[in-house]
Design a protein around this nucleic acid. Sequence first.
DNA 1: GAAATTCATAACCCCTGATTATCACTAACC
DNA 2: GGTTAGTGATAATCAGGGGTTATGAATTTC
Lengths: 307, 307
Amino acid sequence: MNFTLRQLQYFNAVAEQRNFGRAAQVCNVSQPALSVQIKALEETLGGSLFERQARDILLTPLGRDVLDYARQVLGAADRLDQFAKDHSGGHRSLSIGIIPTIAPYLLPGVLAGLRSSDVSLRVQIREARTDRLLAMLRAGEIDAGVVALPSGSNELFELPLFEDRFLLAGSHARLDGMDSDPDALRPVDLQTAQLMLLDDGHCLTDQALEVCGQDRSSGLINMGASSLATLSRLVAEGFGLTLMPELAAQSEAHAVPGLKLLRFTSPQPARTVGLVRRLSTGGEDWFDGLAEVIRRVGNDIVSATRT
Amino acid sequence: MNFTLRQLQYFNAVAEQRNFGRAAQVCNVSQPALSVQIKALEETLGGSLFERQARDILLTPLGRDVLDYARQVLGAADRLDQFAKDHSGGHRSLSIGIIPTIAPYLLPGVLAGLRSSDVSLRVQIREARTDRLLAMLRAGEIDAGVVALPSGSNELFELPLFEDRFLLAGSHARLDGMDSDPDALRPVDLQTAQLMLLDDGHCLTDQALEVCGQDRSSGLINMGASSLATLSRLVAEGFGLTLMPELAAQSEAHAVPGLKLLRFTSPQPARTVGLVRRLSTGGEDWFDGLAEVIRRVGNDIVSATRT
DNA sequence: GAAATTCATAACCCCTGATTATCACTAACC
DNA sequence: GGTTAGTGATAATCAGGGGTTATGAATTTC
C-alpha cells in the first residue's frame, strides 16, 4: 500500500476540476506539489490516470477505474473524520456486565434513563454471574460491571451506588403470624427455617447463608432455583422461605399471587450494589455518567419499597 | 482529515496484537515509531484509543468505535491496492460509441470476440449518430468511436478498419428485372428512382444521396425511417428502394421476407468503417486490441456477403 | 507574433516519520 | 525484598517526503 490519502484527495480533485491549477487551490497546495503527487500516484498504479490536453484534463480508462476505488477510500475516511468531529457528544459503544439478580429489575429503568439523559451511550449488555463478569472485565471483553460489593477483586475499582436491602419472602400461611411484631424479626431467627436459594455460584446465595447464620450443608437449604422469579413462585406456594432484595420486591410481588414480603428489624440485612471497572480504565467520563443513571434508578426502586 | 493510512494500519495492528512491540514487527517499523504515531492519532481523535496495562493492551470504548471506521478505510484501500496489482491484466472500463447503422450488426460479434480474446476489456457502449459521438469523444465522455470515415474532424485520430460496400435493396417485383445484367447496375442509374432513406443526421443518408447523385430536396427522396430494419421492411413491401450496407445485408435479408439485394458494378459504392480517438489518447494498448477485434469481426461479416 | 494558459521540472527547505538509545513502570521470579 | 524481564514512552538524530518559488515547454488565443 504505497499511496497516501493526500494523493487520493489530489487525484479526486483533479478528476472533478479537470485542471491541475484549480484542483491545487481546492486542496490548498501549490500546483507543482499537486502535480508531483499525481505523477507519483501514476507511477505507483502503473499507468496514466489522466489524458492531459492544453485546456482540459480527461480521465483515462484506468483513471476512471481507479477513481471508483479512490472514492470508496475517501468516503470511508470522511466517515471516520466525521465521527471524530461528532464524538465529543458521546456515541460510545460500551459493554456492560450485570448479574442475574439485578438485571431484570434494574435494566429497564437504566436503559430508559440513558435514552432520556444527555449521556449518549450505546450500551451492550452481558448478563452473567459475578465470577464470570470479573473475568470478562479483566480480559477487556466488557468495560464495567454491575455487581454486589465487595467484588472480591482488589485489582478493580469499585464504586458503591445504592443499598439493596433483603426482605423475607414466603406464603401468607407462613408469614401472617410473623408480622405482628415487626421489631422482632431478625435473620438469625430463620436458623431452623427451610430456605429456598438460588443454585451455587450466585453471590446472593452466599449472602443469604451468611445473613441467616446457616451453612450450605444444612439439611434445611434447598439450592436449585435459577432465578428470583422461580424462587418467588416456590415460596408463594409454601415451599420454604427466601431472601428477596428490594430491587426485585415490587416486581415479583406484582407478578406472583400469594407472595408475602416482610421487612427485618434494624440493622436490616442488605447488599451494596456497585459499578466496577479496571483500575487502568481511568479518566473516562462515560463511567461517571453511567454510575449516576444506575444510582438514580436503583434508589428510585428501593425507595418505592420503603414507603 | 488529519490522519494517515499508516496511522490506521498501526492502530489496527495494535488492536489485533494487543502489544506495541509485536504490532511494530508486523508493520516492519520500530516500536517507538509506532508508539509516536498511535499517540498522534489519539490526539487527532481527541481521546485514548487503548487502555495500556503492563502486559496487555485493551481497546477503550472510543477505540472500539474508531476501529470499526478504520477497518472500513483500510478495507477500501486494500481493494484499491489489489486492483492496482491486478490491473496489468487489463480490466479497463472503456466507453465506446458506435453509430446506429453499424451497432446492431457488428456488436454481437465484437462483444463475443472481446470475451474470448486475451484482451480483457469491460466495454460500455453508447449508440448515437456521428456528430453526437464526436462531441462526446472530445468531451472525454467516451474513449473511442466506431464510425464511417472520414469523421469530419481533423482533431481526431482515425484508423480505417474495413470496407463496407452498399447493396441495392428492394422488393422482388422491383429488382427482378434489374439483375439480368449485373455489369450494368450503377448507382447513378437510380436518379429517377424513389429512394427510402434514414431521417436526416445519419451519415448513411448523405452517402446514399451522393452515391446516387440525388439531392435531398428531390421529390423522389423519402427520409423518415429511423433504422435500417425499418427501411428493409418498407422497400421489401415495394415502397421504393434503398442502399443497404453489407454489414446489415445478411441480417436484414434473413429477417425480412421478400427483401432482395443486388450488388452494384465496380467500382462498388462503399463506406469505410473506422475507429476514432482523440489525438491526446496516445500509447494506450487497449485501442489496438479493440481495433483488431472490430476489424476481424467486420471483415468476417462483409466477406460472407461476397461469396 | 505576442500574450496567456497550463502542466512539468528544478532548486531549495522544513517538517514528518523513521532509527537507536534510554527511561520509567510493572510484573514475575528467586 | 531484590533482581530480572517485559513493555510502552521519551529523547536525540537524521533521511526523505512533501511542500514552496521560480522557470521551462507546449499549446491556444487574440
